[in-house]
Lab assay of single mutants.
Amino acid sequence: DIEITTNGEEDAKRVIKELQKRNLEYHIEVHGNQWVIKVR
């Protein structure tokens, strides 16, 4: 598993777009303004 910590929603959406392009499965956890994306 890979864990990507982003700085808020805009940053997270940019990362998610890339993950979707590669058809990767991911899970999002929001901790305040930090979005942690866990990639399987």
Rank of each mutant, 00 (worst) to 15 (best):
I4L: 05
N23F: 07
R40L: 14
D11R: 08
G32E: 07
G8E: 06
K21D: 10
V15Y: 08
T5K: 11
E3Q: 11
K38E: 02
H27A: 11
N7Q: 11
K13D: 06
T6G: 13
N23H: 11
I28V: 13
D1Q: 11
L24S: 03
G8C: 11
V15Q: 02
T6Q: 02
D11M: 13
E25A: 13
Q34D: 05
V36R: 06
E25W: 12
E18I: 14
E18L: 14
R14G: 04
Q34A: 07
E25F: 12
K38F: 13
N33A: 08
I28N: 00
T5G: 03
E29I: 11
E25T: 14
K17D: 09
V36M: 04
E9P: 12
E9S: 07
I37V: 04
E29C: 11
E29D: 05
R40C: 15
W35R: 02
H27E: 14
I16W: 02
V39A: 03
L24F: 06
E9Q: 07
N23K: 12
V36I: 14
H31G: 03
R14V: 08
Q20D: 10
I28W: 03
Y26Q: 00
L19C: 05
Y26K: 00
K13M: 15
W35N: 01
K21W: 08
L19H: 01
V36H: 04
I37K: 00
N23G: 15
N33P: 06
Q20C: 08
I4N: 01
R40F: 14
L19V: 03
H31M: 11
T6P: 05
I28M: 05
N33W: 06
H27I: 14
K13G: 06
G8K: 08
V36G: 00
D1A: 11
G8I: 07
G8R: 11
H31I: 14
I2F: 15
V39M: 04
I16T: 03
L19P: 00
V30K: 11
I16K: 01
R14K: 12
I2P: 03
R14T: 06
H27Y: 14
I37F: 08
L19I: 05
D1W: 15
T6H: 02
E18D: 07
H31N: 12
E9F: 12
I16H: 01
N7K: 09
V30H: 07
L19D: 00
V30C: 10
T5F: 14
R14H: 06
L24W: 08
N23T: 03
V36K: 05
T5E: 05
L24V: 10
E25M: 12
E3R: 11
E3T: 15
N7E: 12
W35D: 00
K13L: 14
K21Y: 09
K21S: 10
K13R: 14
Q20K: 12
Q20I: 14
A12V: 06
R14N: 07
E9N: 04
N33Y: 08
R22T: 05
I4V: 05
N7S: 10
I4Y: 09
K21L: 13
R40T: 12
V30Y: 09
I37Y: 00
N33L: 08
V36S: 02
T6M: 11
E9A: 10
E3P: 03
A12W: 05
A12N: 02
E25K: 14
V15T: 04
K21Q: 10
L19K: 01
T5L: 12
